[in-house]
């Protein structure tokens, strides 16, 4: 069970219709690869965020499969074209079954 897992997102508050806005996301997570050994010689079990998705008003924007090679505190930045006022919904899926969500509103003038 990963501790101190906190999702964070940064999305502009306003945009004009059809504009590509920059979306930045970060989740604090140790991303234990499952390939390291502890001081007792035993393998430290894998514990990573294995999937990240972003939806805008119910429409899928990005769906990422994350593998063990991704570093601690995964950071994703991408551009999304917005045509209407709405809400970005972000979801991170943890190996331990936990699901972390965050959302951000954007107003299109």
């Amino acid at each position: 069970m990963a501790e101190n897992v906190v999702p964070r997102v940064r999305v502009p508050r306003d945009a004009s219709a059809g504009e590509a806005v920059s979306v930045r996301t970060l989740i604090s997570h140790p991303m234990e690869s499952g390939q390291r050994r502890g001081s007792d010689g035993n393998t430290i079990p894998r514990s990573i965020i294995n999937r990240f998705t972003c939806e805008f008003n119910g429409e899928l924007v990005i769906d990422v499969t994350i593998e063990p090679a991704v570093s601690t505190n995964p950071y994703f930045q991408f551009d999304a074209t917005v045509n209407e006022t709405g809400t970005f919904a972000f979801t991170w899926y943890d190996d331990d079954g936990s699901v972390y969500t965050e959302s951000a509103d954007i107003t299109v003038a």
Partner: peptide, 12 residues
Amino acid sequence: DFDNPGMLYVEQ
């Protein structure tokens, strides 16, 4: 600060 991973530890 959003891009600076050091700020995660400041939050803690």
